[in-house]
Design a protein around this nucleic acid. Structure first.
Lengths: 141, 141
DNA sequence: TACGCATGCGCTATTGGTTATCATTTAGTG
DNA sequence: CACTAAATGATAACCAATAGCGCATGCGTA
């Protein structure tokens, strides 16, 4: 993802926008709250206001550069849009987020929308569970 | 759903709890925010504080009597648990919520969890679109 | 490169939804 | 009917998110 993408989106290429884009790109966790982004910027000693973080994230979403998700807990989570649609599976213990994509599920959703006479615009599928990462607090011993 | 269900959940059978349960049961919209429940109680001239509504709804969820959903917008939505699991399809224009259930989708979710080495606990699938209700503001003329 | 305006920035105050506090009231029990 | 623990209601506190407002900056133009 490049600075030119910001320009293409009709937004001026400013330092805060570039830096927020970088944070979203380079973070090992690719799913972050606005607060996460803000803290990450502080660690890099970038002085960017929290309000600006919210503003810019919203602009990125409106421009299609990023997506806003609503997981459990209410807090919005942001993710760069890398083109390929996918859904999420989340560990309730360690917060790890993985991505998946299932053609069959996608197709069935369209069938359901049709059956209910809805023109489908979007969907959100999140699976909650517990992962088996070695450092996950819920790991069975 | 009966008062005895409240007792079974280990909660005292108090007037506010009975009345909130009734609202959730009798409302034509079965998916309500805490505020919706509160307003509905006001219309019935029941003097129940908003704090109590939030408290009781949370207790119902903890007891398994109700479910809390997170649709777009962040606001929590509550629904009585009638036993049969289902997912939701929501109209972005008029807010109408319908329910559906698809065995194939359910099965695939379990397969996905397995593939990612997650023990699945729950999931949330919401389809967003536009319905064709005669009074839906988005209805094509 | 210098100018000037529109846009964007950061700060602070404010909102909206939800939760905690605490004195008073009520349900359940003997 | 009295007693005790739990529940309620009013209010304040909380937190994520937003709006308002001067100041600073990006960028087209000269």
């Amino acid at each position: 993802m490049e600075d030119t993408d910001i320009k293409k989106a009709g937004l001026k290429v400013t330092l805060p926008r570039v830096k927020i884009l970088k944070v979203l790109e380079q973070s090992d966790r690719h799913h972050m709250t606005a607060e996460d982004v803000y803290k990450s910027l502080l660690e890099r000693e970038e002085e960017i206001g929290l309000a600006t973080v919210y503003r810019v994230l919203t602009q990125f979403v409106d421009a299609g550069l990023a997506e806003r998700h609503h997981f459990e807990g209410g807090q919005a989570i942001f993710e760069l849009n890398r083109g390929a649609h996918h859904d999420h599976i989340v560990c309730r213990q360690c917060g790890k987020v993985e991505e998946f994509m299932d053609e069959t599920i996608e197709k069935h959703q369209h069938a359901i929308a049709e059956k209910h006479s809805f023109s489908i615009e979007d969907h959100s599928l999140i699976i909650y569970g517990n992962c088996e990462k070695p450092d996950c607090p819920n790991r069975p011993e």
